[in-house]
Nucleic acid binder design. Structure first.
Length: 951
RNA sequence: GCGGGGGUAACCAAGCGGCCAAAGGUGCAGGACUUAAGAUCCUGUUGCGCAGGCAUUCGUGGGUUCAAAUCCCAUCCCCCGCACCA
């Protein structure tokens, strides 16, 4: 150990020794096991501060559990499945300037290296090497023998097995689903492919098929229940409409709607054109109610929205009401309409507390909307919609639906209408337009014959609920989040046309989607150690069925796969030992996807005793207050953080700056401060090691040992809850402050003993520096030693009280000196009179018995002859004590009566220290025998609070 | 809109019914050490106060309580997710 702290030298040294001694290579034995996993990183870039946080939390827990005596398995792999890596390869090949910039500047890859990673395979190779090196440099205690990449042929066998199994359990189904689609690229568009309209979501409309002489006028609506209140349809006379064949029916829609329908699952065919004007004046039949209603002209109808034909519900839709009102007195004879349409009776079907029979009318009146072109019409629409949705109930008009809340009706009614063949589903973007990077306007396409995992299956969800119920979720507040997300999860497309990965075994045109192939791979870590024992081709289903599920006979597996029997048995027994996953820690972004799928697939495949035990969630990392971005910057790589500050400092900082789901902020200035603190720790340890402990334990040593026990207990409690911030706070900063005070008070005797404990307390956080120190203490690897246990017998309340009195008194003296602005020549302390102590104790006792009041206290006191000498002073003090006690918590009260402390002698022991601190001679008396007391200050002395006289 | 998280002193951040004017870190100011700088160590950092005190603070407004940053109600503001994408 050198006198100066050189993190890189120390870290390199210990990482090498750890690797040489293989201390993190876990094998089953008779200890209790702990299997911790962290989502493997996706290899389209270098590891960054976000990974640093999640992984370091995992490593700290792994190290902590190891020191608690668990046999810890902490493995790591790499994720390469999916499209981004392929996309990246294309960009690099094209030498796309932005990509080159991002990967050169943000991911810190030299340009000449970039030239050499052109193919997806090279990218995977490069980033996995970099990631492994980075994780080693920060000192993660990973068993590297188990690493793998999801594009490995062995792994593909594993995924193939998994999907065949899911298929056989009817968890994979065929269906169609809508995606954002670029008609130009003929590809689904992802968020980063979108130029404009990134926030647009796909909204499901119900298309209600009004009938006109055997032809159909479909109206798109978000509120299918209002079909009961339709009084007419709206068509914009200025728009061009088309007549099309749609799955055997003849439809009339806007030209734009026809373009959209081409991408749906309907077969559409253009037959002819119809102007808006032609349609107006005709009567259509409401398919649900059978009512015949007029088609009327309205200017607000946009051909871009829905079908270009709108059903009118003036009782509940302000636009409809306004358009109808706007027609008052209009001459519609050119459409062949002679009746006064403004007198068409409104049909109310929703009762809502805020409004009368016709909410739309009330809203228009309330907001004073002029006409359908008034911007306030939009506002009124939203208002009515909101109120009706949340507080509305369907009226008798809706027949069997009467009494149902509006918020519950949409899905039910839409389903019913579709089943009756009088409605369809129509998808529309929430924002328009959505523009692809290539410049084309995106549409919504129905991808057909798509493979889905049927997560929406209620029996599956029920199993997941059961699994979740038996799990620990950390922090516990996140449990409700998981529950919500389980409810919300729908069927998920599990196959794609392009990207890296494994083919769907029964439909080889499809690649298994990348989130689906990373759900149960934790079990693969157990196999991964044995990859040199067999070829991918030998990994037949029987192998996995036996090793992971215990199905079949090992001899049969041997016969089928030609894998040696002892290997098969060994894997099976390893699996039995290590599984299930005891803890998975992850960033919060993975809750609604990966972590959910992790649970779904586990319950689908494994028996209940192999379901995961716990999940811990952590937040993101920002840089100097700015959100970090892999593709836009800013970005801080793990590698460069360690290079600049060292592994231990990086670890300590990232752990201490935020707790659980809170986001952490990386601030270089604060990291620098942490570096100094670590340096101080190193220096302190160095000094302690090179000094001899002296003397026997004094009060201050007992105080220090007492404090240490609290720090240990807090640290352990925090780590048990994966509160890394709190644990670092206690194990490092608080203990550091205790040590400073201890040394300032001249404490020496316990320093080495403290250090012994301290390095072990710190070892999970800063393993390198701790091993460096431990080498000089015990010489063994610190991660193989035991984590400290708080020894409650070393808790010394009286030493703590003494120290508290001392520091409070010191602060008081200094405050007085500051206020009276003199250089003190003589200071006298008077400790509280013993009768006051007696009063206090008696009062506390009575308070605990719930019998404390002035009268009974006085009675009790006065029955004691020794008290009578102070009969004059007692009432006033007793009154004060009674009020003071109100504000004391129980623990303190207990201590106050239990602890026997001679304040006078305790202060006398610290007299030298006190006098030195205030640079003035100090004398101490008990108020029982004050001696020199010119101002009678001793009367003010209280228990735990000496009076002070300064001259 | 729905769901989740959050608003605490110059900043980050703990506390979630009583030793709370509020942990810890940072910044800032003063002091010690040093030829000096840095590092380190002390002290202070809401206001007032020439004896250890008092007054006012924890988004805002009410309420419960002997006692509220902490509990209840209302209200305002900020962040994240809402999917086929890793």
């Amino acid at each position: 150990m050198k006198d100066r702290y050189n993190p890189h030298e120390i870290e390199e040294k210990w990482q090498r020794r750890w690797a040489e001694s293989r201390i993190y290579e876990a094998e089953p034995d008779d200890r209790k096991k702990f299997f911790i996993t962290i989502p493997y990183p996706y290899l389209n870039g270098n590891l960054h501060a976000g990974h640093t946080r999640t992984f370091t939390i995992g490593d700290v827990i792994a190290r902590y559990k190891r020191m608690l005596g668990y046999n810890v398995l902490f493995p790591m792999g790499f994720h390469a499945t999916g499209t981004p890596i392929v996309g990246l390869a294309e960009q690099i090949q094209k030498k796309d300037p932005e990509t080159i910039r991002v990967y050169n500047k943000l991911h810190e890859i030299p340009v000449d290296v970039l030239d050499n990673i052109q193919s997806p395979e090279q990218i995977v190779e490069y980033f996995s090497r970099e990631a492994e090196a980075a994780m080693k440099n920060i000192g993660f205690s990973i068993d590297w023998r188990r690493k793998f990449t999801t594009t490995d042929p062995h792994y593909q066998k594993f995924i193939t097995w998994q999907f065949n199994l899911l298929q056989s359990k009817n968890r994979v189904v065929k269906g169609a689903h809508p995606v954002r689609w670029c008609p130009n690229d003929e590809n689904p568009v992802e968020d980063h492919d979108i130029l404009k309209g990134e926030d647009a979501t796909i909204i499901e409309y119900t298309l209600i098929k009004f009938k006109l002489d055997g032809e159909i006028l479909p109206c798109a609506t978000l509120r299918p229940e209002t079909v009961f209140g339709v009084t007419n349809l709206w068509v914009n006379p200025k728009n061009l409409h088309v007549k099309i064949k749609a799955s055997g029916e003849t439809w009339l829609v806007s030209k734009e709607a026809y373009e959209k329908l081409k991408f749906t699952d309907k077969k559409v065919e253009l037959i002819g054109e119809v102007s808006g004007e032609e349609l107006i004046g005709k009567k259509v039949e409401n398919p649900l109610t059978g009512a015949h209603v007029l088609i009327l002209p309205a200017s607000f109808v946009s051909p871009e929205n829905g079908s270009g034909i709108v059903m009118s519900v003036p009782a509940h839709a302000p636009y409809d009401y306004l358009a109808l009102r706007d027609l008052k007195g209009a001459d519609l004879t050119k459409y062949g309409i002679t009746e006064d349409v403004s007198s068409i009776p409104l049909i109310s079907l929703i009762k809502v507390p805020e409004y009368g029979t016709y909410p739309a009318v009330d809203a228009v009146t309330e907001l004073k909307v002029k006409d359908q072109k008034d911007p306030k019409a939009e506002e009124a629409t939203k208002l009515v919609y909101r109120r009706e949705f949340h507080g509305g109930v369907l009226t008798e008009t809706t027949g069997k639906y009467a009494g149902m809340p509006v918020s519950k009706i949409k899905d039910v009614l839409a389903r019913d209408l579709i089943d009756q063949g009088i409605a369809d589903v129509f998808y529309e973007f929430s924002e328009q337009p959505v523009i692809c990077r290539c410049g084309a306007t995106c549409v919504i396409k129905m991808v057909e014959n798509q493979w889905f995992l049927n997560y929406s299956d209620t029996s599956w969800k029920k199993q997941v609920y059961k699994c979740l119920g038996g799990m620990q979720i950390i922090p516990p507040e996140m449990r409700v989040d998981f529950e919500n997300k389980i409810d919300w999860l729908k069927d998920k497309a599990c196959a794609r046309r392009k990207g890296l990965g494994t083919r769907l075994p029964w439909d080889r045109e499809w690649m298994i989607e990348s989130l689906g192939d990373s759900t149960i791979y934790m079990s693969y870590y157990i196999i991964a150690k044995y990859l040199d024992k067999f070829e991918p081709g030998q990994l037949k289903e029987e192998f996995f069925n036996y090793c992971l599920l215990g199905e079949g006979k090992p001899e049969d597996v041997e016969a089928k796969t030609e894998i040696a029997l002892d290997i098969i048995e060994s894997i099976r027994s390893d699996f039995g030992y290590w599984y299930p996953v005891d803890l998975r820690t992850s960033g919060k972004d993975l809750i609604p996807n990966h972590l959910l799928f992790f649970l779904f697939h586990h319950v689908a495949i494994f028996p209940e005793f192999n379901w995961p035990r716990a999940i811990a969630i952590n937040g993101f990392v920002s840089l100097e207050g700015e959100k970090m971005s892999k593709s836009k910057g800013p970005l801080l790589t793990l590698k460069s953080a360690v290079k600049e500050f060292g592994a231990d400092v990086t670890r300590l900082y990232i752990l201490s700056t935020a707790e659980h789901v809170q986001d952490a902020d990386w601030r270089a200035a604060d990291v620098e401060a942490t570096r100094k603190q670590v340096e101080r720790f190193y220096k302190m340890a160095y000094d302690i090691i090179n000094e001899k402990d002296t003397g026997e334990l004094k009060l201050i040593d007992k105080w220090m040992l007492s404090r240490l026990q609290y720090r240990i207990r807090e640290t352990a409690e925090a780590l048990n809850k994966i509160q890394t911030r709190r644990s670092v706070q206690n194990a490092f900063y608080m203990l550091m402050n205790d040590m400073k005070w201890y040394e300032r008070r001249g404490g020496k005797a316990a320093r080495k003993q403290i250090l012994h404990t301290w390095v072990r307390l710190m070892a999970p956080f800063t393993p390198h520096i701790c091993d460096e120190i431990e080498e000089k203490l015990d010489g063994n690897f610190i991660s193989l030693s035991r984590f400290p246990e708080a020894d409650m017998s070393l808790i010394d309340k009286s030493a703590e009280f003494a120290e508290e009195i001392l520091s409070n008194t010191l602060r008081d003296i200094e405050e007085i000196i500051r206020l009276i602005k003199i250089k003190p020549k003589r200071i006298i302390l008077y400790t509280g009179a013993s009768w006051k102590k007696a009063v206090l104790k008696r009062a506390i006792m009575m308070k605990k018995e719930n019998t404390l009041d002035m009268k009974s206290l006085m009675n009790a006191l006065m029955s004691d002859p020794a008290m009578r000498a102070h009969a004059k002073e007692i009432p006033k003090y007793a009154q004060k004590v009674i009020t003071d006690i109100q504000g004391i918590d129980n623990e303190l009260m207990n201590s106050l009566v239990e602890v026997e402390l001679d304040e006078t002698s305790a202060l006398k022991e610290a007299l030298g220290f006190l006098s030195h601190e205030v640079e003035c001679n100090i004398e101490i008396y008990s108020a029982d025998a004050p001696g020199y007391d010119p101002q009678g200050k001793s009367r003010n002395a209280l228990p735990m609070r000496p009076a002070i006289y300064i001259e």
